[in-house]
Simulated assay, not measured.
Amino acid sequence: MKLSHLNEQGDARMVSIDEKKATKRVALAKGKIYLSPELLNLITNHKVPKGDVLSVGRIAGIMAAKETSHLIPMCHPLLIEGSSVTFEIIKDKGYVEATCEVKVSGKTGVEMEALTGVTVALLVIYDMCKAVDKNMLIGDVRLIKKTGGKSGVYEREE
């Protein structure tokens, strides 16, 4: 298998997309942060001392998706046409699940933007809650679905 991010000498390079056709592309990623019951209650009741954890996480995740090319060296800068971050609190299993969706019409996919958005949203939850409990665990970050481009549709089987 030839790796597209390496040149003939094995040096890293940004893949050229100049010959690619622009298509509508969408990526959806999810991740979880596991929390104590006490911390889940504080988040649910908007009682975390630093403020509204999920609102700040949502904004940070959207901002991170837009800035992915500044964080991941070989990512192309993209004109994001839409991005959203949502949260679901699963009290009985002790976690908050974040979902990030990113949309673009372009020559390259938005998987990294969705994965970056969801990861930063989870990191913000950690940051805003660490004064209460540092025993949180971030995990299960994964691409759920992507559409568009030459490779077509990908859907993860959960």
Results as ranks from 00 to 15, higher is better:
residue 59 I to M: 07
residue 149 G to S: 10
residue 18 D to T: 12
residue 1 M to W: 10
residue 131 A to I: 14
residue 144 I to G: 07
residue 63 M to Y: 00
residue 106 G to N: 04
residue 84 S to N: 14
residue 142 R to W: 04
residue 86 T to A: 13
residue 39 L to H: 06
residue 146 K to F: 11
residue 74 M to G: 02
residue 70 H to Y: 13
residue 133 D to C: 07
residue 137 L to M: 08
residue 62 I to R: 03
residue 126 Y to G: 01
residue 9 Q to W: 00
residue 135 N to P: 05
residue 117 G to F: 06
residue 157 E to D: 15
residue 72 I to E: 09
residue 17 I to C: 08
residue 116 T to Y: 04
residue 132 V to I: 15
residue 157 E to C: 13
residue 140 D to H: 06
residue 91 K to V: 11
residue 58 R to S: 13
residue 94 G to I: 12
residue 34 Y to R: 05
residue 7 N to Y: 11
residue 77 P to L: 10
residue 56 V to N: 00
residue 135 N to G: 15
residue 54 L to Q: 02
residue 15 V to N: 08
residue 19 E to W: 03
residue 22 A to D: 14
residue 104 V to P: 01
residue 2 K to M: 06
residue 143 L to I: 13
residue 106 G to V: 09
residue 30 K to A: 13
residue 34 Y to Q: 06
residue 116 T to G: 05
residue 93 K to Y: 06
residue 24 K to Y: 15
residue 11 D to P: 01
residue 16 S to F: 00
residue 64 A to W: 02
residue 111 E to H: 10
residue 52 D to V: 06
residue 23 T to Q: 08
residue 14 M to K: 09
residue 98 A to W: 01
residue 137 L to T: 12
residue 90 I to R: 03
residue 142 R to D: 11
residue 147 T to V: 15
residue 90 I to W: 01
residue 116 T to H: 07
residue 134 K to H: 06
residue 18 D to Q: 10
residue 24 K to R: 15
residue 90 I to S: 05
residue 119 T to N: 12
residue 87 F to Y: 05
residue 63 M to P: 00
residue 49 P to W: 07
residue 63 M to L: 07
